[in-house]
Write a protein that binds this DNA or RNA. Sequence first.
DNA 1: TCCGTTTATTGTGTAAACACAACATATGAT
DNA 2: ATCATATGTTGTGTTTACACAATAAACGGA
Lengths: 80, 80
Amino acid sequence: MLYNRIALFRAERGISRKALAEAVGVNPQTIGYLERGDYKPSLELAMKIAAEFEVAIEHLFSFTPFEPVAAVLRRAGDAA
Amino acid sequence: MLYNRIALFRAERGISRKALAEAVGVNPQTIGYLERGDYKPSLELAMKIAAEFEVAIEHLFSFTPFEPVAAVLRRAGDAA
DNA sequence: TCCGTTTATTGTGTAAACACAACATATGAT
DNA sequence: ATCATATGTTGTGTTTACACAATAAACGGA
């Protein structure tokens, strides 16, 4: 299993799977498959999605579950 | 074309393709194919190799050619 | 109510990333 | 000279990440 934050970043930016798919040049279903972990992306696609969201690949895909955003916020000392 | 620094890091650590292949769980030929750019790795394999070398994926794979190490050293202000 | 958008699901087809085997070549050590 | 190691090349087979099409369900807006 490969975990990812695609849906998270997509939600934050308010873009649909279709829009993300077009931005990175794949089929909309492919984004869906990735989000539910049905299959693992190529490095190429992973890099394109990371570039689209302007995050490091390591922050987008992980073999261990991602820390909840709430925990990251606390760890970052975010008051707001 | 996808550029990579696999051979570079392998040379620096003095390990063979066979040894790297065993460390990341693939066939030795697969490392060879990757090094010459004959094919592009899966995200999974890319992450394993990056972990093995303890570098970020972005420092290991790139769609644009890598800056020569000499240039990086100068940019880093490395005297030695 | 009807309609557009988003998302899920299922099916079929293809290209490419792998595994594995065999063989050639070069080099370095003994 | 011989042997082990590293690398390159070629070939065959399998798995899976993709493309694409069709359909259904849920939701919000006009």
